[in-house]
Structures are given as structure tokens and as C-alpha cells.
Design a protein around this nucleic acid. Structure first.
Length: 647
RNA sequence: GCCCCUGUAGCUCAAUGGAUAGAGCAGGAGUGUUCUAAACUCAAGGUUGGGGGUUCGAAUCCCUCCAGGGGCACCA
């Protein structure tokens, strides 16, 4: 017998047993949704119900007595996996028949192998996950790296569940910043990059920003006779800051800086040229298109190289400009104008999000307080151009033409805009879209005592972090396994270093902020990817050395507490996977991996496998070890971490 | 001012109303002829930010205060 979710099988039996007993003694009690939970210690049993506390209250009886009377009605011989049921202090504790259960679990894992742990949904949905979407202006930096890591894990998890997942990257190439970097690139004479192309673009962006800003500030200060000295000193302060940044940049990139300085400083009004370029791009003029797209694509080429290193891929690259050049944005605006929730203030168009929430009574559903007034959203500027969120509404509607559910992995700081977007969907009468629109918010990654700023060129790139991780991993490998060939060392340090980075960024609950430190990311000890990878390799090594692969037969001999805990952990993997799906929490998988690895290492140290006391025990432990390798590998794969057979 | 997120051991984090709040790191004591020591074992470490409340039961839910971060644009 095999099962795709062994533990659920036991749980169903316990539910059946308890439901039957309750119907017999307490037919007057309505049963809805019996919750069974794992006791804190497996000595109490493997599943427990605390229902007698509520029943005792309701019936005005002692919960301990209620529990006792229920338990006497359960005959465990009616069930396959219930060995006994006993009560402790009001709890009803179900004990597993371990020998049968071990057999079910290990057979299932062996049979299902790479598919174990991933029960498929009956209602497969088309789901679009938008993630990463870093603007094509500069390399992906460490503050942004949490996004692709989480997004990719989410996509893998939903994909394994059987959904049709499509990974989208939204390229935000509309907006002044894109024109700034394109302007700088043009002034340089549109050269071929002599380094990784996104790094190259990033430098141009920063230097151009800085030079243009300085020129602008100087211009204002010279021209105006501001009466208010306060305003003037504010401007001077800003100028001072940019001047110091320009010193920094001059030192860091002397040639590029000098080159750009020469070209831009002689220009009369770079500010105006940039705005012109920006307008041209939005209107889709041939020259502007050619220039801005070239620069954006250069940057994206670099992104792809980085993403390839960490094995993250996208199914669709969606250009915001394509949306603008099509009629989609105008269509949405027209529809919004027709709704009662949009008002104009001169040329400006405003969306009254608050009124939507009120008239459809959405606040409780959205988890908002009744007295919180949702701020309005500006849709159109007085010059007739649209804003980012306006275009995002059109983009979202487009996504829903090809998916039933849309998940946006976007930082928490965009919560309000994402809420307004959702409300716009309601305003457009697309309630189903709105209900299936999910903002997956995660908290920021910051550096201790350091303010990252893309515009100012102050950031640590994701590439640097990966390089450093691999380099440190190489040192570790050399230290720990000096006999390996250099080729092997390099191979291992790659998956160890990259695994470590992925694990570090996924392991914490997404709603919590992460402070980036090298120590945190490059941890090679317990509670890290290398630890889990090492554990996997260790288990594989046992299997390799044992030579023969025993059939699963007599597992009664696995009687030690550690062995039973391992079997339970293995059996619970499908549950963990399902929960990670339901709550969209990839970090649960990381947690699971660590717990399983922990238990296996304790087991490894405490008991011999190959040299077990009897051949039967040896075979049983080999079966257990094999199952561990399969589940560890499946779980690691789910969060994009490679499970090596040797390291 | 309003809104959102966070606050748990010295540090980094677990624990989705259940039993004695769990791990790792750092610091302390150990385990090397033994399946990969990137490991394991033991001890120590807690007023779950403070205060109220709801509940048989609260780190978890509600109220309030405090601290840190983020947001409230004709930026993206």
C-alpha cells in the first residue's frame, strides 16, 4: 500500500474514530471541522484533540471525564494505523501503529520518489507570478535579491501543486529614469560595454543622474533671487550632497566619469533633452524607441546572466512601454471614467478608492478598519500623461486575460498602491479578478548603518554577493576536503555558495525585515543550505557504501525515538508542502529541511546503519536513509537548492 | 496626524488559540582507530517591548501605550 500523504491517512482515521465516538455519546453536539494537532512531544502520541476542553465547558462537566468517556468508545482494532488512544489531562492522544505506518511511509516515498510530497490539486489554476521586475537602470542589488528568490520558490511550490504557473517579469522602462540613462548612453556614443552590461548601464545611470542634478541645482540657484533664505540653503545642501557624490564617482570610475562630464557639462539644458526623450519614448517615436530599448536590453542581458547563475527563469518579459503604445491604458481610463468612482479636477483625473471600498462594503474583507480613509489615487497628470499605477491597472487586466490568479511579489512599501489597484479592479466591476489578485508583500533587506541608493550608486550588487559566497565556499571546501581536485572544489563551492545565499534570503518569514550581513548569508553551519546539502551527501554516502539496496520488508525493528521521529517527519512532508501552498510561505520549506537534517544528523551519530546489530535492522535503517535522501532532495529542490550526492 | 509591518534568550530566528515557549550562533563542558566532524552530546541562558482585557487555555485575538522600519505625491 502506498499513499501520497501518509500522515493524512492516519489523521483521517483519528477523525473518523473521534467523530463516531462523539456521535454515539453526544449526538446533540454539532461537529464542524474537528481539528487535530501534533502534541509537543511524540511520547504523548502523534495526534491529539483538545476538543474536550470546549465540550466540558458546554456540558458543564470536567474535561478529563469527557475525554475518558469518549476514549472508551474507540476501538483501535477497527483501524489500520491507530495503535491506541489514551487521555492525558483532558487531551485525547492518538498513538500510531509505527510498524505499519513506517511501511506505508517508506514504501510511498520509494515508489513516488521525485513526486513524493507533492499531492496535486484537483482544481488546477492558471497562475501568473510577477516577480523581480527590477527597473532596467542598474544591476540587481542585494536589497532587491529577496524578491526573485522568494518569487522563484513560490512558483516552484505552486507548480508542483499542479497549477499552470507562468513567471512574468515586468520591465518598467517608461519613466524619466530610463531616459536619463539612455541620454547618458547616447552622449557616450552608444558604445559596446566592456564589462557585464548591467553593471555598465548602472554606472552610466548614476553618473548621469549626478551630473544632470548638479547642473540643474546650480542653474536654479544662479537664476533665482529667492527671498527665502531657507529655500536657498535647502538647495545648497542638496547641491553639496550631489557634489560629494560626484567626487565619489570620479574616484570610483575615473574614465567613464571624465567622459560623461565632458559631454554633459557642455550641454545647454540636459534636463530638457531628457524630458524630450521621455516624451518621445512614450509617444513611440522611432529614434527614442531605438535608443531607450537598446539601453534597457543591455541591462536586461546582464540580469539574465545573473539569473542564470541562480537558476531563475521567466516565461514572459512584459514591457511597460508596449502597454503604453497599445490602446490598453486608454481603454482602462475610459472605463474608469465611466464608473462613479473617478472625478476630474481640471485635467487631472483622480480615483476615489475610498468610495469603492465603502459602496461595496469591502473594508472588512480587505482587513481594513472602518474608520480608515483610503487615500485617492491620481490616474492622469495635468499634462495628460498617466502614472505608474494607472498603467499597472491595465497590466493587471491584461494578466487576467491569461490567468485566473495573479500573484505580485512586490515589496511591502507598495502596499497602498497595490491596494488601490485592487480597488480599481472592483470599480471596473471585475470582482472576480480583484478577489484573485494577491499582493505578496515582503519586508525590506537593508544594510547595517548604510543607506542603499540606486540613484546615488550606493549599493552592493547581487553579483558581488554571489561571487563572495562562492569564494568563501571555495575556502571552506578547501579547508574541509583538501584532497578533492580543484575542479571538484569549484563545482561544490558553486552550489554551496549559491545555495547558502538562497537559503539565507528565504529562511526568514517574508513579513520580517532582513538586515544583510555577510555572516548571515554565508553561514555554512547548522540552519543553512550547506548544512542540508551536507546531510544529503552524507546519507547518499551510506547508500553508496552499503552496495545492495534492500527491499522494504521488516520495519518493526525501527523502535528508537529518533527513528520514529524521522519517520513522522518524512510522513509529514506532504502536509508541510500543502501548508506552504495555502499560506504562500516558502520559508516553511526551509524550516522543514533544517529540522529533518537535524534529526538525521542526530540519528547518524547515535546509531550505525551499515554496521547495525542485525541484518534486519541494517536493512530497515538503509530504507530509512534512502527515504531521507529523497525527501531532502525534493524539499531542497522546492526552494531552488541543489542536493548533491557528494561534497 | 493617519495607515501598514515588526518587537520572543546576549545575537539571528521557530512556534497560525493548546500540554513544560523551541533551534542555531556566541560563551561553558565534552565526543576523534567508528557509515563524510560542514557533525553530534550535555549544561547554562526567557516577566514573549510595557500595561489592561477576552478565553477552560494567549507569544498568538481585542484595547492602550512604547520602540524600530515603511507608506500616505500630478515619483516609480
Amino acid at each position: 500500500m502506498i499513499s501520497e500523504n501518509p500522515f493524512a491517512k492516519f489523521r483521517e482515521e483519528c477523525k473518523t474514530a473521534l467523530t463516531k465516538a462523539m456521535k454515539e455519546t453526544l449526538p446533540q453536539i454539532e461537529l464542524n471541522n474537528l481539528q487535530l494537532k501534533k502534541p509537543p512531544n511524540i511520547d504523548f502520541g502523534q495526534l491529539a484533540s483538545s476538543i474536550c476542553f470546549a465540550l466540558g465547558k458546554k456540558l458543564n462537566k470536567n474535561p478529563w471525564d469527557v475525554a475518558d468517556s469518549l476514549v472508551t468508545l474507540i476501538d483501535s482494532s477497527d483501524f489500520d494505523f491507530i495503535e491506541k488512544v489514551i487521555t492525558t489531562r483532558g487531551y485525547i492522544n492518538f498513538h500510531l501503529n509505527f510498524s505499519k505506518f513506517a511501511n506505508l511511509t517508506l514504501s510511498s516515498i520509494k515508489k513516488l520518489n521525485k513526486q513524493y510530497g507533492f499531492p496535486k490539486t484537483k482544481i488546477a489554476k492558471k497562475i501568473i507570478i510577477e516577480h523581480t521586475s527590477v527597473n532596467p537602470l542598474h544591476p540587481i542589488h542585494i536589497g532587491q535579491a529577496r524578491n526573485p528568490i522568494i518569487g522563484d520558490a513560490l512558483a516552484r511550490i505552486l507548480d508542483q501543486r499542479g497549477h499552470y504557473v507562468s513567471r512574468h517579469y515586468y520591465i518598467d522602462d517608461v519613466g524619466r529614469q530610463s531616459s536619463v540613462v539612455a541620454y547618458g548612453y547616447d552622449k557616450l556614443g552608444r558604445p559596446e560595454p566592456n564589462e557585464k552590461s548591467d553593471h555598465f548601464v548602472g554606472k552610466i545611470y548614476t553618473i548621469t543622474c549626478c551630473l544632470v542634478e548638479i547642473k540643474r541645482l546650480k542653474g536654479i540657484i544662479a537664476e533665482t533671487e529667492l527671498s527665502s533664505s531657507e529655500e536657498i540653503s535647502k538647495l545648497k545642501l542638496a547641491l553639496h550632497e550631489w557634489l560629494s557624490i560626484s567626487e565619489e564617482l570620479k574616484q570610483k570610475y575615473p574614465i567613464l566619469f571624465a567622459d560623461l562630464y565632458k559631454k554633459i557639462d557642455s550641454e545647454k539644458n540636459p534636463e530638457e533633452d531628457i524630458n524630450k526623450l521621455n516624451r518621445g519614448y512614450e509617444e513611440g517615436s522611432f529614434e527614442a524607441k531605438k535608443l531607450v530599448r537598446t539601453v534597457s536590453k543591455l541591462c536586461l542581458k546582464g540580469f539574465r546572466e545573473t539569473q542564470k547563475r541562480i537558476k531563475i527563469f521567466y516565461d514572459s518579459w512584459d514591457w511597460e512601454s508596449d502597454l503604453v503604445w497599445s490602446n490598453k491604458v486608454n481603454d482602462v481610463l475610459q472605463n474608469l471614467r465611466d464608473s462613479p468612482f473617478v472625478y476630474s479636477d481640471g485635467e487631472v483625473l483622480e480615483f476615489n478608492a475610498e468610495n469603492v471600498a465603502l459602496s461595496l462594503a469591502l473594508k472588512p474583507k480587505l482587513g481594513l478598519r472602518a474608520d480608515y480613509e483610503i487615500p485617492p489615487l491620481t490616474l492622469v497628470r495635468s499634462d495628460g500623461t498617466t502614472l505608474y499605477t494607472t498603467r499597472d491597472i491595465a497590466y493587471t487586466l491584461w494578466k487576467f486575460t491569461r490567468a485566473e490568479k495573479v500573484i505580485n511579489v512586490i515589496g511591502m512599501e507598495q502596499s497602498l498602491a497595490q491596494l488601490q489597484l485592487k480597488l480599481a479592479l472592483y470599480a471596473l466591476d471585475q470582482n472576480e479578478y480583484a478577489d484573485n489578485f494577491v499582493h505578496f508583500a515582503y519586508n525590506l533587506v537593508s544594510l547595517p548603518g548604510y543607506k542603499m541608493s540606486s540613484r546615488r550608486g550606493r549599493y552592493i550588487t547581487f553579483d558581488e554577493v554571489l561571487d563572495e559566497a562562492i569564494e568563501r565556499a571555495y575556502k571552506e571546501v578547501s579547508k574541509r576536503s583538501p584532497n578533492l581536485s580543484d575542479n571538484e572544489k569549484q563545482k561544490i563551492s558553486k552550489f554551496v555558495g549559491i545555495g547558502a545565499v538562497r537559503y539565507a534570503l528565504i529562511d526568514v518569514d517574508p513579513s520580517k525585515p532582513v538586515v544583510f550581513t555577510w555572516d548571515r548569508v554565508l553561514n555554512f553551519e547548522t540552519n543553512s543550505a550547506p548544512y542540508a546539502q551536507y546531510t544529503h551527501a552524507r546519507a547518499c554516502s551510506i547508500l553508496r557504501k552499503s552496495k545492495n539496496q534492500p527491499k522494504i520488508q521488516n520495519l518493526d525493528v525501527l523502535k528508537k525515538k529518533l527513528e520514529r521521529e524521522l519517520i513522522l517527519s518524512l510522513a509529514s512532508f506532504p502536509d508541510v508542502f500543502l501548508e506552504a501552498n495555502e499560506y504562500l510561505k516558502p520559508n516553511m520549506i526551509a524550516d522543514y529541511v533544517n529540522t529533518l537534517a537535524d534529526k538525521f544528523n542526530s540519528f547518524y551519530n547515535a546509531f550505525p546503519v551499515i554496521k547495525a546489530e542485525t541484518p534486519t535492522l541494517r536493512d530497515a535503517r538503509l530504507n530509512l536513509t534512502e527515504a531521507i535522501t529523497i525527501v531532502l532532495s525534493n524539499a531542497l529542490n522546492l526552494i531552488g537548492i541543489f542536493a548533491p550526492e557528494r561534497m
